[in-house]
């Protein structure tokens, strides 16, 4: 990364100014960037808004998809922009499980235990082909993998790809955010 020269700082200026104006997202909900935002709603809605903007994922990866998950968390894609970059080392502190990679049969009970250790409300994201239905490892009489994360935990969001790019994971997390805001939850 080079130094920020004068030309760059000029280019950044409109962006800074724009943040003061109301931003409306495609779903129609007002963003928290709106300074004049007033919410008159039930307490649940307020709590859901807080949950949606601070999704804390559990730190664990299962296979190659985890590389893309790490890339999404690192500076270039920066999951912190969406409040979802605080990967927790303990299941007790996490509220979203990103299943990133192939689930072997030997690993399945461990994942289930981690899921049971997470306090509700909690959500699960199935990232990549393996966690959707077994992906490239699915064939008749295979003995090594679990064909789909939804055989172990209830999955909220499926992200296709092998592996999905970090943008796809971010899109999935934004989708999950909408789901949380709407108050839809399998595991209260």
């Amino acid at each position: 990364m080079g130094k920020v020269d004068k030309k760059d700082s000029k280019r950044l200026l409109p962006l800074v100014n724009r943040s003061a104006t109301p931003v409306v997202d495609p779903a129609g909900a007002e963003s928290i960037a709106d300074p004049a935002m007033v919410r008159l709603a039930m307490l649940d809605d307020l709590l859901n808004m807080g949950r949606a903007n601070s999704l804390w994922p559990l730190t664990f990866g299962l296979a190659c998809c985890a590389m893309e998950m790490m890339a999404a968390g690192a500076s270039k894609y920066d999951l912190d922009r969406f409040g979802a970059g605080v990967f927790r080392p303990s299941a007790r502190q996490a509220d979203v499980m990103i299943l990133a990679g192939t689930i072997s049969r030997k690993m399945a009970p461990v994942i289930r235990q981690l899921w049971d250790q997470m306090p509700g409300p909690k959500w699960a994201i199935a990232m990549g082909g393996c966690t959707i239905d077994g992906g490239p490892f699915k064939y008749p009489n295979q003995y090594a993998i679990v064909e789909g994360a939804d055989k172990i935990v209830p999955v909220d969001i499926y992200i296709p790809g092998c592996p999905p790019r970090p943008e796809a994971l971010i899109a999935g997390i934004l989708q999950l955010k909408e789901k949380v805001k709407a108050g839809r939850n399998f595991n209260p």
Binding site: K106, P140, Q142, Y143, A144
Partner: peptide, 17 residues
């Protein structure tokens, strides 16, 4: 393999269709 596995997957007759 998992502790409760009851098969030997690299035997030639395993999983043959």
């Amino acid at each position: 393999l998992p502790e409760d596995a009851d098969f030997f997957p690299l035997r030639k007759d395993f999983g043959r269709i």
